[in-house]
């Protein structure tokens, strides 16, 4: 940090005095600002608290936002004070002789230590919370490392195709639905795949986001904590109707979910018989337009 030593009243003593003033005001306003961000803004930050993973993401954003407050305010206050107090006034010569410019090793060292600690600390914090809890709702690939630690999971297969999501329920006879309901206080395992191009299953309020790739099973976990409505969007540009590739789901009570699933199972019984056996991926037949995706044939691109 540079320190200006001038021959007039803006001397080293004046600089120290100014720094004390800046730090005093900064400290008070920072505490107030951090409290406001943490307690007032924080609970309303995205993506909410509907699931364990969403809650974790909200905590991360809240924590980082709170730490940003003092840094931002210090920069603003220093600039503001500098402009007000040390500007060149009418009649003054604004030329600063190079000989009057010197450094302050203590200030420089403190700046390096504080900023480095902050950046590395946030990097470590972010890295840890990218994987906790249970993968933090991100797609972990076919063999997830971070799992919920329970085998009592509701399995939901997300099937993306241009341009809708459908959902298969292996624990409910392998039925497939165009809508999605989930029970509250339940660990969910999403198995995400695609029947054509790359899509992305982004259940915003659930804190879940996983790419849907053809011929690949991408696993993501979440634990529902509260009832409510959530939005599912495709987050990979996938063609003309990409912007319209969304639907809404609901987290309901466990009893309501059981009722919904049972009704769906009965309603869809006749079409469930026509579906292929439940599988984590479905291989295309490459039989051209209109070709079924469920009977493996010859890949025309095999030799490419």
């Amino acid at each position: 940090m540079a320190r200006f030593v001038l021959e007039d009243s803006r001397s080293e003593e004046a600089g120290k005095s100014a720094l004390v003033k800046i730090l005093s005001v900064w400290a008070v306003v920072s505490i107030i600002g951090m409290a406001l961000v943490w307690f007032v803004l924080g609970p309303h930050l995205a993506p909410g608290t509907m699931t364990d993973q969403a809650q974790g993401a909200q905590f991360d954003i809240k924590f980082v936002s709170t730490l940003v407050v003092p840094v931002l305010l210090f920069v603003w206050f220093f600039f503001g004070y500098s402009i007000m107090k040390w500007r060149v006034r009418p009649g003054e010569d604004g030329t600063l002789p190079a000989a009057n410019l010197s450094g302050n090793s203590k200030a420089q060292g403190a700046w390096y230590v504080i900023t480095t600690t902050l950046v590395l600390g946030l990097a470590a914090f972010g890295t840890y919370f990218l994987i906790a809890p249970a993968g933090a709702g991100g797609g972990e690939g076919a063999s997830p490392i971070w799992t919920p630690g329970t085998t009592k999971l509701l399995q939901v297969q997300v099937i993306a195709q241009q341009w809708r999501f459908t959902y298969r329920w292996p624990q409910f006879g392998g039925m497939e639905t165009t809508g999605i309901e989930l029970p509250v206080n339940t660990e969910i395992e999403f198995n995400v795949t695609s029947l054509d191009v790359i899509h992305d299953f982004w259940a915003y309020q659930l804190g879940v986001k996983a790419d849907a790739n053809p011929d690949y099973n991408n696993v993501a976990y979440t634990k529902t904590l509260a009832t409510g409505r959530f939005t599912v969007r495709c987050d990979e540009l996938c063609g003309i109707w990409h912007g319209a590739m969304y639907n809404y789901g609901t987290v309901v009570s466990q009893q309501q979910f059981e009722q919904w699933a049972t009704n769906m199972e009965q309603q869809n019984a006749s079409v469930t018989k026509l579906l292929p056996k439940y599988s984590l991926t479905y291989t295309p037949s490459y039989s051209g337009a209109g070709g079924g995706y469920y009977n493996t044939s010859v890949d025309p691109n095999a030799n490419l």
């Binding site: 099937i159 195709q161 459908t166 497939e176 165009t178 029947l195 054509d196 869809n268 006749s270 079409v271 026509l274 579906l275 292929p276 295309p284 037949s285 039989s287 337009a289 209109g290 070709g291 079924g292 995706y293 469920y294 009977n295």
Partner: peptide, 29 residues
């Protein structure tokens, strides 16, 4: 016609009575 890429679309939905008439015959799937 051909096979469906996703057979879930063989089900009639959102119509009055949940059916469509194919050459006069009511079908839900």
């Amino acid at each position: 016609g051909g096979n469906l890429r996703n057979s879930v679309w063989s089900q009639v939905a959102g119509t009055t009575g949940g059916v469509a008439y194919i050459n006069g015959a009511a079908e839900s799937v």
